[in-house]
Amino acid sequence: MPSERLDAEWVRSWWEQADAALTKLMQSFFPAHGFPPAHNAVLLATDDSHRATDTLVDLTPIPSDLTTLYWVISEASLPDVDSGYFIHSPATAAEHFREYGPAPIEGESIAVLFASDGGGHLFAIGDSGQVWKSTTASWSDDFKVAAPSLQEFPEQLGRRIANQP
């Protein structure tokens, strides 16, 4: 289990850096690719997303780092970063948990799906604090470690945004 918990100020700082990198990416996207970008954004949390986070917390023993993340950002839509990355809103995470239950990850007593990529692979955070990625586009298939902590997951996204041609 990670020794340090995710800090809200760190998430806010990450959002500022990601927002600046996305602005730069969107300005260079058309010349680099020959077509306009889709809408790419990391959205800050709102009163509605805070209520949805509270609902998710009431529904399941959500890992505290995910609660911290959702308290600062509500979701991310990055269709033009690699094959696409999406941090689902807390309302979507709750809806998926109700419908499908926890991700079946061996060694995790609870794992909440919270993100996906453009290929349909899913990301879950377990009670260990690790972030897992499905090996196929399936809710019930195997998962492998994608990041040792929830802090590392947005750091990876930030690097992908900054390094996108």
Rank of each mutant, 00 (worst) to 15 (best):
R5A: 10
L6R: 03
L6A: 06
D7Q: 04
E9Y: 06
V11H: 01
V11M: 00
R12V: 02
E16A: 14
Q17E: 14
D19N: 13
A20T: 09
K24S: 14
F29T: 05
F30G: 02
P31H: 14
A32L: 08
A32Q: 07
G34F: 02
P37A: 11
A38F: 07
A41R: 08
A45W: 05
A52K: 02
T53A: 12
D54H: 11
V57A: 12
D58A: 15
L59M: 12
T60V: 15
D65Q: 08
Y70T: 04
W71E: 08
W71A: 08
I73L: 01
E75Q: 13
A76R: 11
P79Y: 08
D82E: 15
F86I: 07
H88K: 06
H88D: 11
S89L: 03
P90T: 10
T92S: 03
A93Q: 04
E95W: 00
H96A: 07
H96Q: 11
R98E: 13
A103C: 12
A103R: 11
S116P: 00
G118P: 01
G119T: 06
G120K: 13
G120D: 12
H121R: 12
H121I: 01
G126V: 06
D127N: 13
D127I: 09
D127R: 06
S134Y: 02
T135M: 12
T136A: 15
T136L: 11
A137V: 06
W139E: 07
S140T: 11
S140H: 10
F143I: 05
V145Q: 08
A147L: 12
S149I: 04
E152N: 07
E152Q: 14
P154D: 05
G158M: 11
G158I: 10
P165V: 10
